[in-house]
Amino acid sequence: MTVRILAACGAGVNSSHQIASAITSEMKKRGYNVKADAVMIKDVNAEMLKKYDIFTPISKTDLDFQTDTAIVPAGPILYRVPSMAKPVYDNVEKVIKEKHLK
């Protein structure tokens, strides 16, 4: 089964794409099949999140709507420092296991 992830950042140009591709390749290494998209955070809404298992914004974001999608802040990945990225990947993997997404 494919785990669906949505990354988002302010402009939807740089950060979200980097997060989407980093999570995809790390999760592949960990044996999960992941499909990640990247969008501008202002375009994210409840309807859009229904299509995703995990939402990975840059920072802890207060959404003005309710969602059942798991939220994992992923900004530390942007530093390209393995010790900073690892806790984010671990959190994503934890959600995959908890929600039995594999």
Partner: peptide, 15 residues
């Protein structure tokens, strides 16, 4: 960046 999908990620290259 007028081409976010293209080539290696610019931010990743900077970092």
């Amino acid at each position: 960046n007028n081409d976010p999908e293209g080539q290696a990620n610019v931010l990743a290259q900077i970092m």
